[in-house]
Design a binder for these strands. Structure first.
Length: 604
RNA sequence: GGGCGUGUAGCACAGCUGGAUAAUGCACCGGCCUCCUAAGCCGGAGAUCGCGGGUUCGAAUCCUGCCACGCCCGCCA
């Protein structure tokens, strides 16, 4: 394969060095099989990455050839191994248990990494993507139950950026409807005394968050929710709130302004919490915009002209999605009997606007939105629009059950982060007694927030998740600090080399190492580095960040093995080749950590 | 009742476009700091892959029936 071929190949999806190896090996195997009398087998599909590293890099099961050749698979594999031609990329070929195992030549991997880095000559995809995530109702502090959306969404944003896509991270602000109306009503009608009287017996505001608007105002929200349950006041309140909701849905600007005055400080409090986790947004879009600018009304009129439109007795309108294959309840209501729109209707208008922004759409939603998302998607298609890609996740629960801001059984993210930092500080103080408090605090903050993110992102989104303090605050192998620690080792080496020997650039000499260099630890690390770009791509294209989290664990683990076997600095002498490997790994670990939102500190 | 999802060692979790001894972490047992940060490394033990059928040379993975758990099935958001 010459460079032109390589570039051609790498322009196609799925490029990484193991795939390049596959590309090299495949024709050699086809030829060898041909010599043995086997033609036209789907070798490309059969040739797979080895499961165990000690088996090699690629494996070909030989069982399907057995019938045709009238030989035992084991024998076929052994003979086939003899027939595969030599190639600089191939280190070793062997037949074991009916499998043809191919091991890459480590020197070849090094050459490829030196020439192309871990990206290969893969061009940047530079796709535009609009990722909408979190979009939590601004009615109280951000709690752990909502954390999965924010962490999953932000990690997708980061990984897309790492991959080279052009991302807009968007928060859809639910600035109308009942939840904000309740908050606005409470702030207008209840005094601080009323609120506290209503909430006796519940935990009071954590003194740490006194003055933080989300923690202060949620009391009003909770008091109002409690009042709505009471027989005496409920009816009157319900009526008032109902009027406010109705006004907001009709685009009443004064009411919408009062809503905004109520929720904006709460939203800002939530965003400062998210900011502490490294989660930021490029744009906020308010739901009410699509009502006030007439998009929603125009949309409803258009929906009314559709073939599958239906009208209820009271004038409410719906689409019969059963005619398009939806099972179960097939009527999808988009207009109430009083003529106003529904949340889903506005969501469709919002999506139509999003499609005009020129990029692919990805939404992160809780599993409770599955049906709604399907209805919205089908309606968009009915209108000739595309449906967005949606990443669903299962809710985070407490061991006691589901979290609810209304009932007050929540773990606030602010409290979790504070606790995580404190626990991390305890560990730092113990392990590094000579660090001063300022340094300890900085490290503890980085470790605490990273650990919280990683704890959530490492499990696949569809899996139910029960929040447990002891899991969230684990700082051992399999956690963020494990990855962070490997990175600090690489940083520490870099620093020592710079201090004791000289500038790194002067020491890197382009050596590809001698035979003695290639210990197990080095080879393990090279192989993980070689598949790095593929792991990024898979996580991005399949929307499965947990796979990348696992890869980063492997990378950190591999770096530790390298660190054990390969000493870079010995008695003031630097091994230039090892230093190059360490520096490559350090850069990849740093990028990867940023992709997961882990803070890449240099000392811990 | 219908739709979707989950069920893998004591706990947590990966693998699910079918392939070798089911990966990883915690907990458990044993070893490693005169040597670049031991938040680490090495070794050991621990699994009828929810249960039953089927397809296949080969099933945790595909099909089917059943069981358990979660979410949804509002002219709420």
């Amino acid at each position: 394969m010459d460079l032109a071929d390589l570039q051609q190949y790498c322009a196609t999806p799925g490029c990484d060095f193991m795939q390049m190896l596959k590309r090299i090996v495949q024709p050699l195997i086809v030829e060898a099989l041909s010599n043995m009398g086997v033609e036209q087998m789907p070798i490309e599909k059969m040739l797979q990455a080895s499961r165990e590293l000690d088996q090699g890099d690629l494996a070909l099961p030989c069982f399907p050839f057995a019938k045709r050749l009238g030989m035992a698979p084991a024998e076929i594999a052994e003979q086939l191994a003899q027939h595969v031609a030599d190639h600089p990329a191939i280190g070793e070929v062997s037949g074991v248990n009916g499998y043809l195992n191919i091991r890459a030549n480590p020197t070849w991997i090094v050459e490829q990494l030196m020439e192309f880095g871990t990206q290969g000559s893969h061009p940047s995809p530079n796709r535009s993507v609009l990722i909408e995530h979190t979009s939590a109702n601004p009615n109280g502090p951000f709690h752990v139950g909502r954390a999965r959306n924010a962490i999953l969404g932000d990690t997708l944003v980061r990984l897309h950026r790492l991959f080279g896509n052009n991302v807009t991270a968007e928060y859809y602000v639910d600035d109308m409807g009942k939840q904000v109306a309740v908050l606005a009503w409470a702030l207008e009608h209840l005094s601080a005394e009323d609120v506290e009287a209503q909430l006796v017996g519940r935990e009071s505001v954590n003194p740490t968050w006194k003055g933080k608007a989300d923690h202060e105002r949620v009391r009003w929200y909770q008091a109002a929710q409690a009042l709505r349950q009471e027989d005496t006041a409920a009816e009157e309140i319900e009526k008032k709130i109902g009027l406010m909701v109705h006004a907001s849905e009709n685009g009443d600007e004064a009411v919408l302004a009062s809503f905004q005055a109520a929720y904006q400080p709460v939203l800002e409090g939530m965003l400062s919490t998210l900011g502490r986790l490294g989660i930021n947004f490029d744009r906020f879009t308010k739901e009410s915009i699509f009502v006030t600018n007439g998009d929603v009304e125009r949309l409803m009129e258009r929906l009314g002209t559709l073939e599958i439109n239906g009208t209820a007795d009271n004038g409410a309108q719906f689409l019969d999605l059963g005619a398009r294959g939806l099972k179960g309840k097939t009527e999808f209501f988009y207009r109430r009997g009083d003529g106003s729109s529904l949340y889903a209707t506005r969501d469709i208008a919002y999506h139509m606007w999003k499609w005009t922004q020129g990029g692919d759409l990805i939404n992160v939603l809780g599993e409770d939105h599955k049906l709604q998302a399907k209805q919205v998607g089908m309606t968009l298609e009915e209108l000739g629009e595309k449906r967005p890609e949606v990443v669903f996740y299962s809710f985070i629960k407490l061991p006691e059950g589901k979290m609810s801001t209304r009932r007050g059984n929540v773990v606030f993210m602010d409290d979790l982060l504070e606790e995580a930092k404190e626990q991390a500080a305890v560990v730092v103080r113990e392990l590094r007694p000579h660090y001063d408090e300022e340094k300890i605090s900085a490290i503890a903050e980085a470790v605490g927030t990273s650990a919280v993110r990683f704890n959530i992102i490492k499990v696949s989104p569809e899996k139910g998740f029960t929040f447990r303090w002891e899991d969230a605050l684990t700082f051992e192998a399999g956690s963020a600090p494990f990855i962070m620690y490997s990175h600090t080792r690489a940083c520490s080496i870099r620093k020592r080399v710079q201090n004791e020997v000289g500038p790194i650039e002067d020491i890197l000499n382009g050596d590809i190492g001698t035979k003695e260099h290639f210990s197990d630890g080095l080879i393990t690390l090279l192989r993980v580095l070689a598949v790095h770009q593929d792991r990024v791509e898979k996580a991005v294209n399949d929307h499965r960040p947990h796979l990348f989290a696992e890869h980063m664990l492997h990378l950190a683990n591999a770096y530790n093995a390298f660190y054990r076997d390969c000493h870079i600095l010995t008695d003031g002498q630097v091994d230039g080749f090892y230093l190059w490997v360490s520096e490559l790994a350090r850069g990849i670990m740093k990028d990867g950590m940023e992709g997961l939102g882990l803070v890449a500190i240099e000392e811990m």
